[in-house]
Amino acid sequence: MVDELLSDNEREEALREWWRDNWAWILGGIVLGVALLFGWNHWGKHRQGQAESAALLYRDVETALMSRDVARAEEALAALTGKFDSSSYAAQGRLAVAKLQFEAGKYAEAEALLRKVADGAKDDELADVAQLRLARLLVQQGKNDDAIKLLEPLTAGGFGALAREIRGDALFAKGDKEGARAEYAAALANADAPIDRQLVELKLQDVGGVVPAASAVQRSL
């Protein structure tokens, strides 16, 4: 209503006054917006470049794995983790090289890599996989109590059946057949569990257990 009562000259003068009072803020906002947009684009390109570089180094790890060359795989992994230690490529590389080391009998080296992933991977699933593999390695070395304790947090999750199976192996190795029976039976109770059901059934029978009826029916289908 007030604006309608102002003359053209008065409105023009008011606009000029408003501009004198606010031009610095407006210009600063424009500059900041441009800077943020430039920074975002630069960061995006930087991240893409980093990911591509990490992928190339991971490819070297894969090449060494295909040739079953442990020393070469370790060198390739060192190059990858030296530059991209916190990347998912580094975690996957550690898991893969640890498997190769385990098969070569380099248990201490494999354990160190698996613990690194289990304790520091940003991807929870990779961390869980590392814990499962570490537990198997601990059982292989006779560190059964350590394996049982390590797997306790996983028994109720998506890897629960696998964790139960490995805990059963650890308990059986300790001579606790009753405990092993309970763990194997719990592993088989999940019909959709990603386990080798026939193998776990054999383990259960070996410790005097009875294969659950649901498991037997499913196997016959």
Rank of each mutant, 00 (worst) to 15 (best):
Y107S: 09
V31P: 11
E103N: 01
R47N: 14
A191P: 04
K116P: 08
A64E: 01
Y107K: 05
E178M: 05
L6D: 11
H42P: 00
V117Y: 12
A78R: 15
A121W: 08
L15D: 07
V117K: 12
D145M: 03
R11L: 15
A110E: 12
E201M: 15
V31W: 05
K203N: 06
D119I: 00
S7L: 11
Q131H: 11
E62N: 10
R11F: 13
Y107Q: 00
Q198A: 13
R181L: 08
A71L: 06
Y58T: 00
K177C: 02
G105A: 07
G39L: 09
D145E: 15
H42N: 01
A79I: 06
G157E: 02
I148D: 07
R16I: 14
W40H: 03
I26M: 06
R20L: 09
K149A: 14
E201T: 09
N190W: 06
D123F: 10
L5W: 15
A163C: 00
T155S: 13
K203V: 11
M1F: 09
K45P: 01
A78I: 07
R59Y: 01
A182T: 11
S87C: 13
L5S: 13
R167E: 13
K149G: 06
L57C: 00
K106W: 02
A118W: 09
R72K: 15
I166P: 07
L15S: 02
R197N: 00
L126R: 10
A180L: 05
D21N: 14
A76M: 05
L27I: 15
D128W: 00
V210S: 11
A170Q: 08
D119F: 01
I148S: 03
G157N: 13
S67W: 04
E13D: 15
D145Q: 12
G142L: 04
L151N: 08
S88L: 11
A79T: 11
L138E: 09
D145V: 04
A96P: 08
L32R: 10
R115K: 12
F172A: 13
V97D: 08
G33N: 13
L80T: 07
I26V: 12
A147E: 08
V61A: 00
S67F: 07
D196Y: 03
D169M: 11
A79L: 10
D128I: 02
R16Q: 15
L171A: 09
A24E: 01
K149W: 01
G33R: 10
V97A: 02
V139K: 09
L151H: 05
S215P: 08
E183M: 10
L199F: 11
Q141W: 05
L95A: 08
E109L: 13
A79K: 14
V200K: 09
E165Y: 05
N144F: 07
I148L: 02
G157A: 02
